[in-house]
Every structure is written in C-alpha cells, then in structure tokens.
C-alpha cells in the first residue's frame, strides 16, 4: 500500500444499476489494502429509478463520507448523461470512466426534456473540466461475459486501469470473487477482464 492523503471516487448511475454494490466492492478493496475508508450513499426514495450517487474515499486525511466538490479523482458512471450530473465533484483534469449505453428518462420519452448526444457530454468533460473521458459500451461487454448484471464488474475492471489508480487490480478482483455467488464467479471474472481490456485499448496501454 502506498500512503496517500486522499483518493476520491464518485460513482453515478440510475437506481437499480448496482451503484451501491460497486461502491461496496471498491470500499472493501481499499480496506483490505490497508487504507482508512469513508463511503457515502443515499438510501430511500431516490433509489427508485432516479439518479443515484455513491462516494468512495480513502487515505489518511479522509473524514467525511462525501467527495468534496472539485476534489474527485474519478467519476465512474454507469450511464452516459449521469457522468455530468455530479461533475461538480470532479477535479480539474480528473478522469471519467463511463458506460455509453443510455437509459432514457421517462421525461425525455414524454417530450419534456432532451437527451444529449455523446459528443455533447464528452465536450463538457474534456473541454470544460479538462478531464479524460474513457467511455465504452459496458453493457455490451457484460452481455458478452454472460449477463447484463455484470455491467458493474466490467466498469470496475476498467476503473482499475486508469493512471495512478491506487488499488491493485488483483485486490479488487479478489473482493469481487468473494462477494458474488459462487456460480457467478467465472462470469464476473470474465466481465472484469473485458473491462480491463476496454480501458487498456482506450488508454493505449
């Protein structure tokens, strides 16, 4: 474990996508790595298919459960437009790892709102926040791994590849192995590898 003052992950998505599960996996991986950990989550009404956010923080100087605005090292977004909803938490020059498969809100179907293009989303991330965008269709890879429910594992796999990510890939993989039902281990390991590969391809590693 290399000592760090703080590392801040913001996980966003739509209620029901497994945001809380992903946060837990990363939290446990950080704990196993020996870090002081704080995680923040919101339960209750907002979980019902609304936008959700979880925070995972670790390091010596971490006390509160929320990633302070402008201090997030990375946003892990389960849905493209959700990458922007909490982007105020991202630091200048941070990273965004995002699933590019949209979930269209009812309000958009009703014609009350517009869903932006991927290009518009990326422009804000890259131009305004000077952040690196690592976007790919994680759902497609999850289906390839065996089931759409492994989307969060694909995304976590990708997350472990970003520059200066403090947690070891194997640490995280091990926590996933221990947390999923025995019969789903192989599928999740495959999903994790697909995520790792997707990120490596994008990052040119």
């Amino acid at each position: 474990m290399k000592p760090i003052k703080e590392y801040n992950i913001v996980i966003t998505g739509v209620g029901g996508q497994g945001v809380l599960t992903a946060a837990n996996i990363l939290g446990w991986a950080a704990l196993h790595a020996g870090y002081k950990v704080r995680m923040g989550e919101v339960h209750g009404m907002s979980q019902r298919f609304g936008s959700v956010v979880s925070y995972v923080r670790f390091g010596e100087e971490v006390y509160g459960s929320m990633v302070p605005e402008g201090k997030g090292d990375v946003i892990l977004s389960f849905e493209p437009v959700e990458a922007l909803r909490y982007i105020n938490h991202l630091k200048q020059g941070g990273m965004v790892v995002a699933n590019t498969k949209p979930i269209v809100p009812v309000q958009v179907s009703m014609g009350q709102a517009r869903y932006p293009s991927l290009g518009e989303i990326m422009e804000i991330v890259e131009e305004d926040f000077k952040a690196k965008w690592i976007g790919f269709n994680a759902e497609e890879l999850a289906v390839k791994a065996g089931n759409v429910i492994t989307t969060n594992t694909v995304l976590i796999g990708a997350l472990t590849q970003i520059p200066e990510f403090p947690l070891e890939e194997d640490h995280v993989r091990e926590v996933i192995r221990l947390s999923v039902p025995p019969k789903a281990v192989d599928m999740n390991m495959k999903a994790f590898d697909l995520g790792v590969k997707a990120a490596k391809d994008i990052l040119g590693l």
């Binding site: 309000q107 932006p116 804000i124 305004d128």
Partner: peptide, 22 residues
C-alpha cells in the same frame, strides 16, 4: 468555486431530469 459553479451550471443545462419513479 465561482468558476466551478459556472462550469457546472453549463453542464447541467444539457442534463435531463431523472427523478425517482414508481
């Protein structure tokens, strides 16, 4: 924070609402 708020305001302009639903 002023600069951050301005950038964030601009970002939210293209974000459709996603309230919880039944």
């Amino acid at each position: 924070y002023e600069e951050l708020d301005e950038k964030y305001r601009k970002a939210l302009e293209i974000v459709p609402p996603r309230p919880p639903s039944l």
